[in-house]
Structures are given as structure tokens and as C-alpha cells.
Design a protein around this nucleic acid. Sequence first.
DNA 1: TCCGCAATACTCGTCTGCGAGTACTCGTAG
DNA 2: CTACGAGTACTCGCAGACGAGTATTGCGGA
Lengths: 209, 209
Amino acid sequence: MKRRKVANVLGLAVLSVVQERPMHPYEMATVLKQRGKDADMPIKWGSLYTVVANLEKHGFVEAVESVKDGGRPERTVYRITPAGRAEFEDWVRELVGTLDREPPRFKAGLSMIGVLGPDQAISRLRERLAQLGERAEAHRAALEQLRPLLPRLFLVEVEYDLAMTEAEARWVRGFLEELTTGALPGLDAWRRYHETGEFPDDLGEFVER
Amino acid sequence: MKRRKVANVLGLAVLSVVQERPMHPYEMATVLKQRGKDADMPIKWGSLYTVVANLEKHGFVEAVESVKDGGRPERTVYRITPAGRAEFEDWVRELVGTLDREPPRFKAGLSMIGVLGPDQAISRLRERLAQLGERAEAHRAALEQLRPLLPRLFLVEVEYDLAMTEAEARWVRGFLEELTTGALPGLDAWRRYHETGEFPDDLGEFVER
DNA sequence: TCCGCAATACTCGTCTGCGAGTACTCGTAG
DNA sequence: CTACGAGTACTCGCAGACGAGTATTGCGGA
């Protein structure tokens, strides 16, 4: 599977707006911000002009005109090409149809949670749980406010995020429960390891997956 | 919040292994692969030597000795420093205690699912659902196999991933249900928009969040 | 005994992402 | 009427990241 000619997700965002009507880069940024697309994906505005130039280089957009408006610097207006339209749809198809290869960073953290003692682990997890609660609440509020204004289709990504946030909260709560009630087996060994630095050597170190 | 001196997650992985005992870079790679840490985080082995050099530059690890073994090139063995140990723990604390700022790419895809028609959306979502099923199955198998060999603590990230995978599958299944039964309101408008390219203008375009 | 492939242990050059800066303009409060 | 802060519309330099390459050794098979 050859990777995309323009890999930066900002490229996708750009395509999604020029696909509606021709625009100049700064306007794209404005529209994207105003629609809150930066909440759906990680966007670095510093890369905007580079990305647009790349899209042009690969024939996904083309310059239409240079407008001079007032004393400002010239603005180049870009339009999407048929190739760009195809790329955009294909990109969305890929995002919807295939799993992310990059696991969330929390998974990396969990896989190393051993270094924190049980006590630190508990307090950190409590913090995370609080943040998850806030995020869920924010999404619920947004949904309630937007539901009467927008078709379901445009809210689906928020519903998804809410569902995942709640699921993670549930999992963290469950894990926390095990930690605080002492139900998790090996808790003592863990605490001993963290306090003394000694490794209980009764575990077969050499495990392959 | 100042960002980490060494930002690459591979740096975290490296710290997690040198923290146990001094090692040379290639050995770190071997150990990390053998423990399957590359499933917990996105690791590019091409960056290994750069990252180790950076960790050294910032005083998180230091060179101990250069071993010459057989006719092979020299291997520099690195040891973790106290600063490195602190950085490592702090990094894990951050990963466990705070939410990822980068939403999953699927969310970006969902937010643009409109461009695919309902039919394409359905078939793509079916594919995703199948992949989610496979992933869940793989995790269940891994857990079953590893549970008798390893303490719970070392399996927690797999349990988390499994829980999240199942949650996503549930959500996708639900959404798919709405699409296929026609329960989702606005389905006709969507299909019409996709076939004709015309936008039903009965929606207030200018919505801020 | 000779070949070829896998593993070992790196190195290098390219490319690009993006933070930080710049320069100009407009509205407005004093 | 002027100074200042908030936009507007970009530009640039450079640190990294990473793919692809390289050179050597060991080993199994024919």
C-alpha cells in the first residue's frame, strides 16, 4: 500500500473545504476554524502554506487567480481538480474503512504503569477519569445545543467521541476499583517492587507474544 | 506546559529498557521487539540512533563503554542517569494522567463521511467492523494464552485495548443499523445530495460551536 | 566448499513539519 | 489625530524523523 502523496491530515482538511468552492489559503484556515474542524483532527496552522503548495504540486488543487484587495499582499485562490476530488474521497474511504495503526498514547502509558507505584497510579487514573468526565459532559452539551440545528449526519463524529469517552471512563473506573479495593492480584508484589526496586523473580521473564 | 526535550515516543521505549540495565542500541531494539512493545506504540526503528543520541545530549542516558566483540563494529553501551529515571517516570505519569490531545483518525473520517454516499459509507463501515472483530479476537486469544504466564499488571494494556475495540465495534454496529434500516433521519437528503451534488439549502450553514 | 540468505549493527540524505517571526492594515479609545 | 492592539496573510530556518542503504558475520544446505 503506497502512502499518500500528501500525508499531512491538514491536506485532507484543505481538500474538504476547497471541494465546496475555490478559496485562498487564509480563508481555508478561517472556515476550518469556524467549523471547529480542528477538534476532529490535529491541525498545525504553520503547515498550511506548505501543504497547499504540495497539493498543488501533485495536481490536487490548482491556482485560479490572484486577487489584489486593498493594500494587502496578494492572495492566490485555489480550486480543486478532479484528481483532488478523487483523492479526497479515497482518503475518507480509507479513514472510515480501516483501523488506525497507531494505538493511543494511553496504551503506551498503561504498558509502563508498573514504574509508578500503585498509589501514584491510582491518583493519576483518578485525574484521567475526571478529565474524561469533563470531556463527556462537554460533548453532551454540544450535542444538546446542536441537535436542533444540524442533521444527525453532521454530529455523528461527536456521538462517536462521546461513546468512546464513556467507554474509556467505564474501563478506567473498573480498573481503579480493582486497585483501590485490592482486588487486583499481585498488588503487594507491585508495591514491594516499587518501594525496594527488587524484582520478584518468580516470573518467567522471557515471554514472547 | 513545556514540551519534552525528546518528544519521540521511541525515547520513552528506550528509557523503559535502559532503566532495567545498561544496553547498546541494537540490543534495546531487540528487547523491545521481543517484548512486543511495538504493538503498544508507533515505533520507527530508523530513528533509534538519533533518539538515543538525543537522550544522551539531554543527559537522560550516558555512554558507559565501547565493547568490541568479534570483528563487528563497536557497540556503545548506555546507562540511564537519575535525570533519565525522573524523565521516564514523569512521562509515564503524563501518559496515564492526561487525555490524548489528538483525536483518532477515524473521527476525522466520520466528520467527512458525507462525501461518500450512504451506500459506500455502509460498505466501508462493514469493513471496519470486520477488522474490529479480528482485532478483538486476537486480543482475546493473546489474553487467554498469556494470563497463566504473566501477572495481570502486565496485561492491563491489552485488556484496555480489547475493551476499547469492543466499544468501537458496538458503536459502529449501532450506526450501521441506523443506516441500513433507514432509521437515520435525513438519509434521503443525503443520497440526493450525493447523487446530484446539490445541497439541500434548508439548513442554516453558519453554525459555530 | 561455495553460495546465498538472515541477522547484526549501524549510517546517511532527504524531506517536511511547524514554531516563530514579519509586515501591513484597520478599527477604536483616548 | 494618533497610537495601539487585534486581526490578516503570509515566510522562513532548522531540527528531527525515517526510509533506504551498507558492510560484516554466521550458518545451513546442496
